[in-house]
Write a protein that binds this DNA or RNA. Structure first.
Lengths: 211, 211
DNA sequence: AATTATGGATAGTATCAGTATCTAATACGA
DNA sequence: TCGTATTAGATACTGATACTATCCATAATT
């Protein structure tokens, strides 16, 4: 299809598609002349992915480009690729210069409790540490009991995720692992918010009825 | 304490504190003269909250101001306040003008399956719908089985949250509900990412050993 | 032949989250 | 009490980000 059709199909403005092409998020179409190139379904889907990653997941264009690069040219194995992908997701570490031998005491304690290995090179370790520290500093520390509950259920979710990694090809496994981690997060978060509202509604109604 | 001490204690630059004051995120100190005001522990904690909400949760200054307004002057009840708070959290709805009678078919189906009521006025309903639509469009649709698994565990987490709402005062209940929803999300997400890496590591090692 | 569409390059814009500067008033130490 | 430092409050400036618009030369379409 021509680019005008790609604009229609994807709903993304022409100027923005050109911008994504410049930034390397979208692969070029197959050029048939100096002023014509043809695009396919893969371009439509890539644009949907870009919009999902920037819009719903909230990644910047730069981070989105990193994720796309990872699924196009993955690391040697799924584990490393997944680690690199997680490193692109917020909340980001702000590398304080001169404070390199970073340690994440809050995360370390939690991981020890749950029998998971502690490796400060996992990006998610720093992310967990920062999330715990922020909640504490804001006056809402998370105690061990709550963390145990959270982790038990989150682990069950993660086990489902990992158990359903497709095994047709390494490529599709990596895409699923990387994008499933990122794209399903907003779903999980939305489900929790909905459950909160549902439960709060019941409690509110009970309170009202009791008054 | 004077503002210079607040700068030290909080780690937030002076110019930034003044900015937060201007934007109404931070309450003014108690003025003792035209050029002096005194600040307390509540100011230190408020700054930590602002940094947590903007930095770790990823809210904009505007949205952070909305959340703070909600816990300072809540709606009539917890349920409404919680709903309003959830409305400030990403991913945001982009109000397409002239398309007001919004409906969220994906979310409606899911909620029906799980026996929760469908009300398009819950912000999280639109958020769920958008998250599901984005995953689908990007080529990673979520089937019912997965949603059932996710929802079962997420609901267990939410039940724990709601069961632990403090009942000393309506004020503290509202603060806990609003900020617990927002501040604990990054923790849950980080735990899932860690579990993914942990499980992928095992699987990778198994693969390597088997080869 | 005239109009329209495209690729590629470049420049411009809006928003956001601070940062910096300035002034007048005040605090505080010597 | 003099002189330096600090502060509140107002206003202006900055850098990054994510587009958006314009231009041109070429080529496709009618």
């Amino acid at each position: 299809m021509r680019i005008s059709e790609l604009v229609e199909r994807s709903g993304v403005p022409l100027a923005t598609i050109k911008y994504y092409l410049r930034e390397g998020l979208l692969m070029p179409g197959e050029a048939s002349s100096a002023t014509q190139a043809s695009y396919g379904e893969d371009h439509v889907q890539r644009l949907a992915l870009i919009r999902a990653l920037t819009g719903v997941v909230g990644l910047s264009i730069q981070k989105t480009a990193e994720v796309i690069r990872l699924i196009e040219r993955p690391r040697t194995d799924l584990f490393l690729t997944l680690g690199a992908a997680i490193g692109t997701l917020p909340p980001y570490a702000e590398d304080v210069p001169g404070e390199n031998p970073r340690d994440y005491p809050l995360a370390r304690t939690v991981l020890a409790r749950h029998g998971q290995i502690y490796d400060p090179d996992y990006p998610a370790v720093g992310q967990l540490d920062r999330a715990l520290a922020a909640a504490s500093a804001a006056g809402f520390p998370i105690d061990d009991d709550r963390l145990d509950h959270y982790n038990a259920h989150v682990r069950a979710i993660a086990e489902y995720d990992i158990a359903h990694i497709p095994d047709e090809s390494a490529q599709s496994a990596i895409e699923y692992a990387v994008l499933g981690t990122a794209l399903y997060e907003p779903v999980i978060v939305a489900l929790r918010r909905l459950a909160h509202q549902d439960l709060a509604r019941h409690r509110f109604i009970a309170d009202t009825a009791g008054t």
